[in-house]
Design a protein around this nucleic acid. Structure first.
Lengths: 159, 159
DNA sequence: CTGCAAGTTGAAGTCCACTTCAACTCAAGG
DNA sequence: CCTTGAGTTGAAGTGGACTTCAACTTGCAG
């Protein structure tokens, strides 16, 4: 059968738009051979890389970090199952942390739904210093504002 | 004491930058009175609104959706505890769904770490149609690409 | 050989949630 | 009154992850 895939085929099989695949290539996340006429031809292994990229994005990892992870794959040999497992398990910890924080947020929200107060100094909901924001520019889940600064005191005792 | 807050005071107490507060105001998420000299003065209730905004963002809600939610608060009277509880409980369901999906992703990732395969058609990891992406432009957690399209078949049986 | 879908490029545009800037004006303590 | 820190505006910039566009070129079925 086909040894290599056109960009359209890779797009169809991965669900990732051709423009995104070209973008990934520019960032160094995937690679492609070229035909005589300069068209991209993807080895089947790239399908696995694209899968890894999309899964990583679901975990909340930035493309830059994904690139770094993919770069850590051995260049000399075809990556083994163990290689991929190593990458995945690193993400697993991120995922655990995310789940932990969201669960905490949910439980706290429950408390605040109960009292309806939103008096956030009384409950632990608006808890600076333990947010979903990762460190650094990448890997942000939700909070755009990095949890830096002098511990905001949002607590309302409204009129 | 102070009946109203300057933008600096609201910023300090909420941990949200003044520029962000002005931005929120432009989007219609908060309101402010003006002094004779055109400076903003915030009623204490705005502190509660800002708290709600930040919490909602942690749940992964877009500012536009938050605006819609805040708009549903009664304009005629001061919102009660029950009003806030109603808004919060709507988010609670979002949060539950998010946690469910992330947990599923984690468990699936576990399976794939076990076999190291990343053969995503064999495991359920790369599961189109049940992703973290919400519907519509808002509320995206991680997946930028809305899960539309003809069910991408990312499964690798590499060489 | 031809026609046309699929591919190519660099540059520019989009969306979200803000931040930064320049050029002013206000408010309040001394 | 004067100074100084805090506040005002609109416009433009940022960053991440792409998409869109125009203008061409390839590859392949018929």
């Amino acid at each position: 059968m086909h040894e290599s895939l056109t960009i359209g085929q890779l797009s169809d099989r991965s669900g990732v738009a051709p423009s995104a695949l070209r973008y990934y290539e520019r960032l160094g996340l995937i690679r492609a051979e070229r035909t005589g006429g300069n068209q991209r031809r993807y080895a089947r292994i790239e399908l696995r890389r694209v899968a890894f990229i999309r899964i990583s994005q679901q975990v909340g990892i930035s493309l830059e970090e994904i690139r770094a992870a993919l770069d850590s794959l051995p260049a000399s040999r075809t990556p083994t199952a163990a290689d991929w497992a190593r990458l995945s398990s690193a993400w697993r910890q991120r995922l655990d942390e995310r789940i932990r924080l969201m669960t905490k947020l949910r439980d706290d929200l429950d408390g605040c739904i109960g009292c309806g107060c939103l008096s956030l100094d009384r409950c632990t909901l608006y808890n600076p210093g333990d947010t979903l924001a990762g460190e650094g520019p990448g890997a942000r889940l939700v909070l755009p504002r990095s949890a830096a600064g002098p511990a905001p005191e949002v607590g309302v005792s409204p009129s």
